[in-house]
């Protein structure tokens, strides 16, 4: 069985007015079907990319896979364990949470501006009781910073002292601090400029090789997808319209929507 499995995943959002307003204006409830019966599975140690334009439900799926949002219907299992299992005890929940972490889109909002980088990195270790003792935690934080290409002296700085790319590295280090097996990357490079994007993507690749990580990549950028993903799912308005491995999708796209996405990606042309 695959490592991460999403089965018939649905999510509706209730955008209705408050009850009293609805009764007075006699309007029905307004529901938004953000994700509609999406199925996919990710093998251990591979990268799966979900692509789609804004509003296609990519981020909603990401939030459901890490457990920030509850699915309206369907299920997500990680290594055979159901994420939405209400009967799970709190220690079991914590054990499952540790295995799934996330790297966020905005390098500016994803780090608490009042916390030093060292404290940001030590928090997951404390929450999951991975490393006891502040001295050992400090040492681990320094190690993590070096793994993502920063220096151990950066632990005593605040997030605002770093550039966007460096912050994204800190964000990756924070995810690694939990020693996760799956990392969900929600548009991790879309706020960075192109040269920094490549560095961050290379870092993610080498970490995947080193720790055998499984990635779920959420992005709208087909260039990112082509370098990172083993398998790609194309989302359109909450529905998974096509799923293929990376080469197949770019060489022989089946759906019109996929063709449209590929042809509308900006390309650099020389000579003309």
């Amino acid at each position: 069985m695959s490592f991460v499995v999403a089965k018939d995943l649905c999510r509706t959002f209730d955008l209705s007015d408050p009850w009293i307003v609805r009764k007075l204006t006699m309007r029905p409830k307004r529901l938004l079907q953000a994700v509609d019966r999406v199925n996919f599975s990710i093998e251990r140690g591979t990268t799966y990319a979900l692509v789609g334009e804004s509003g296609s439900g990519k981020s909603t799926i990401a939030n459901m896979v890490v457990g920030l949002l509850k699915p309206s219907a369907g299920s997500i299992t990680i290594d055979g364990q159901n994420l939405g299992d209400a009967s799970m005890s709190r220690p079991d929940q914590q054990r499952l949470r540790r295995r799934i972490q996330m790297v966020f889109q905005s390098p500016y909002a994803s780090l608490n501006p009042r916390w030093k980088v060292g404290d940001i990195l030590c928090e997951p270790m404390r929450a999951f009781k991975l490393i006891e003792g502040s001295e050992a935690q400090r040492r681990r934080a320094a190690e993590l910073l070096e793994q993502v290409g920063l220096s151990d002296s950066d632990a005593s700085k605040y997030p605002h002292e770093f550039s966007g790319g460096q912050r994204q590295r800190i964000s990756i280090a924070r995810a690694l601090a939990s020693q996760p097996e799956v990392i969900i990357c929600d548009e991790p490079t879309s706020a960075l400029d192109v040269s920094v994007q490549a560095q961050v993507l290379n870092l993610l690749k080498s970490l995947q090789k080193e720790f055998g990580l499984t990635y779920l990549f959420i992005t709208h950028d087909l260039a990112v997808v082509s370098t990172m993903a083993n398998k790609i799912g194309v989302l359109n308005q909450g529905v998974l319209v096509e799923e293929q491995d990376t080469e197949g999708l770019f060489s022989t796209p089946r759906e019109d929507y996929t063709k449209m996405l590929i042809s509308s990606a900006p390309k650099i042309e020389f000579g003309s």
Partner: peptide, 13 residues
């Protein structure tokens, strides 16, 4: 709504 709060929720605080 900021993502550092989501990160804190992810580690089960």
């Amino acid at each position: 709504e900021k993502e550092y709060v989501a990160a804190a929720r992810l580690i089960g605080l």
